[in-house]
Design a protein around this nucleic acid. Structure first.
Lengths: 214, 214
DNA sequence: GGAATTAAACTGACTGGTCAGTGCAAAATC
DNA sequence: GATTTTGCACTGACCAGTCAGTTTAATTCC
């Protein structure tokens, strides 16, 4: 087992040392507060209080408020890309088509957003800002996620399943956006709908079964 | 004519009284700064400086920083919904189908975002936040925009052009999201692409011409 | 088993700086 | 001469980050 692998496995299982526990509590407190109010409007005192921890502890665990935020971002996006990749690989193993893979990724995206709505909110709110300290972190991390979708599109074109005319990066971005915005709207404005409902609506859009009679 | 009516009519035509000119400069300064940095991270001093105006003038024209921002929001969304509605009505007059209307609205959305990228950035960043002062303003204004899309979908189903199975609110939200995110990605990550390119990619997605051979 | 020792983790009062908003007299503009 | 803008000093609240001291838990030693 490589050192790298050890590190990432430790980072993935939310370790249970005292320190890891505190960090976890801080992540959870920060993610909801920042999703609600934005980064600048959220104070370190608030985060500490919500986490049930003294302010000094925040600074014992993170170099600064923005470092806390950056690590939070990385942590969250790692979860998302992992889950997208798994969804794509699973349908491949089951001998599904590429459209099936896209559909499975849509569902995986919805499940993620359903489980971590605050993180998604915060991510969308920060992604297109310019001139912010964590800008580069966000770009890298966005590219990772979109690349998974682009890969599936590329494979689909290669095997003739998808039209050669589609613009890979633009279509990938549009698909991601479709899922993101539909899911946030679902959460915010019609939370009574089931995940299956939302998935069905997006599937239909993906597969061009919007326009008429069939 | 009531005082209220006078105020709002004056706010609509970007009038050219001395006062209106100052307000316009303040809007422009505020929209870019807030898009870049967020509301809380942007100071009133910065806005005044960028607008080339004294700080006192900001407070002579707006009751507070957040009032300035709210009026900015209303101003911007008014422009967007007007332009969406016009696009939909135009294709209707030209005897176009409902899918044509949707397509025209996609283009209108893209044109708007192309012209006012900072406003769009800022709008997306604030829309799904909870617990903010201008939350209700945003909700109302979002509903206006989505309603235009929903109306076209509803008409399309009524005349048999669109499938009865589609979920109107969810599909409308997904379409708006598709355009929004694709456009922001276009601006941020591949600004060299032309508006026509982006429009073509989204049209294809809308009309289900993604999956191969036909 | 229990006392002593140690390092890691945590605490919270404090500091220095920042910023929204005020006040006002003088100047510019219409 | 009325409205609008300027310039700038000032206030009071708020907040990121610091640090000297305390607690916790694990280890060593008797």
């Amino acid at each position: 087992m490589t050192i790298r692998a050890m590190e990432s496995s430790r980072a993935v299982d939310s370790g249970s040392s005292r320190r890891q526990l505190t960090r976890q509590k801080l992540y959870e407190a920060a993610v909801t507060l920042i999703a609600e109010q934005g980064f600048s409007a959220t104070t370190v005192d608030e985060i500490a209080e919500r986490a049930g921890v003294a302010k000094g502890t925040v600074y014992y665990n993170f170099a600064s408020k923005s470092v806390l935020f950056e690590e939070l971002l990385r942590h969250g996006v790692r979860l998302l890309t992992t889950s997208l990749r798994e969804a794509a690989e699973k349908t491949a193993q089951d001998g599904g088509s590429k459209v099936d893979a896209l559909d499975a990724m849509i569902r995986a995206g919805l499940v993620f957003i359903d489980r971590y709505p605050a993180f998604t909110q915060l991510y969308v709110a920060e992604l297109w800002r310019t001139n912010r300290a964590w800008q580069s972190t966000l770009m890298v991390v966005r590219q990772e996620a979109v690349a998974v979708v682009e890969g599936v599109l590329r494979d689909g074109i290669a095997n003739g399943e998808l039209s050669e005319e589609i613009d890979i990066p633009l279509t990938a971005a549009a698909l991601v956006g479709m899922v993101l915005v539909a899911a946030l709207d679902w959460q915010a404005f019609q939370p009574e709908r089931s995940l299956d409902d939302v998935h069905a609506a997006l599937s239909r859009l993906l597969q061009g079964r919007v326009s008429g009679n069939r």
